[in-house]
Write a protein that binds this DNA or RNA. Structure first.
Lengths: 190, 190
DNA sequence: ATCTTTTGAGACATGAACGTCTCATACGAT
DNA sequence: ATCGTATGAGACGTTCATGTCTCAAAAGAT
């Protein structure tokens, strides 16, 4: 059976999540193909990594689009923003779960093109958080950039928890959302 | 001037925070010594990395001790636990800042001895969070392990924010603490 | 001033991963 | 059944980091 480029990338991602330092030989084996064939699809390791990075960014961008992030930012409507926030966080969980290794992989951050793109996507989110602050949904006393970092950090936490089996996958969206929004302190009123 | 083992390790950590993939030659240069001298102090790269890992764990353990984490856990006293929580989070920020690269470095997690030690330290924290839950300080509806992961993720966020200059260092403890405790959502009552 | 120790520079061998290439074979389409 | 294409196995050369070693120079101690 012919392994498509897509299939190879999926297998690579899956394997890199277990061993971020995997060699081309290991990635080929993980995809069930020979090293030669892998090199026929991706002429170099760097090309493969860049392809993975771009794919991750595409998915990330799709999450933003599907959640209507930009429109919500422009609308300023509290309810619209709230719905977009939930949708975005839910989508990000899936992406972070799939592309987990990229969250903290140093090599991913080196390429200028990838860096530019992720900066761009991040700026959109930051603008969105700022809009959510103006709409009274998020605390105004926190820098929007810090909120963005917080979400990123919580996604890392999600990945770790899932990797170690600490929490069930179906519980993750609720845990992330409630922790992000309400924090871990016991509320007086409950 | 003779470079002590400690000084070499400090320089190495500092440099690894900028480039986690630095070679021995680069680490030697960063410490201002020759590659030969570096190898006289640390016979192999692995030995250096393990030494760094152990040092990080020592500092981590000191944070636990100085914050009185174990005693607080045993006491069950709400006020004692609250004070320990603040002290611990403050201390963890410093450690995470210094040993940032270790937070997400894959190689650090491989060594069995290091893994065992970090598991042990983590278990203490988890027990502490559980005590904080019983004392009514932290939400009881969140798994203590998830709370632990949350703190870890927020420390990653801190490191990122500092690395990019998004927030001032002096603001970090407040931001981390309030985000962890209260979340990012705007409270009704404010 | 002399002796001892430490250091730096560099050569050297080793091993791992990469990227290229060849060739026989298996597969698929016609 | 045949032809064209894709694949696997493996050899090959290259590069790079590692770890060892030597030796002359610098630093430090007496």
């Amino acid at each position: 059976m012919a392994m498509s480029r897509e299939q190879i990338m999926s297998a690579a991602i899956q394997h890199l999540n277990e061993n971020p330092l995997a060699s081309m030989a290991q990635l080929a084996e993980a995809a069930g193909i020979s090293r030669a064939t892998l090199h026929r699809q991706f002429s170099s390791r760097e090309e493969l990594m860049l392809a993975l990075g771009h794919r991750a960014h595409e998915q990330w961008e799709q999450v933003q689009e599907r959640s209507g992030l930009v429109d919500a930012t422009a609308s300023g409507d509290r309810e619209v923003i709230g719905k977009a926030l939930d949708a975005m966080l839910g989508g990000l969980i899936e992406v972070a779960d799939a592309y987990g290794f990229g969250l903290t992989d140093y090599a991913m951050l080196v390429d200028p093109a990838l860096k530019r793109r992720s900066d761009e996507l991040e700026e959109r989110e930051i603008a969105f958080y700022a809009a959510a602050q103006r709409a009274g949904l998020l605390r105004a006393d926190l820098p929007a950039r810090w909120i963005s970092s917080t979400v990123y950090g919580l996604l890392v936490a999600v990945r770790e928890s899932l990797r170690r089996g600490d929490v069930a996958r179906r519980d993750v969206p609720r845990l992330l959302l409630t922790t992000f929004q309400d924090g871990a302190a016991r509320r007086e009123g409950s």
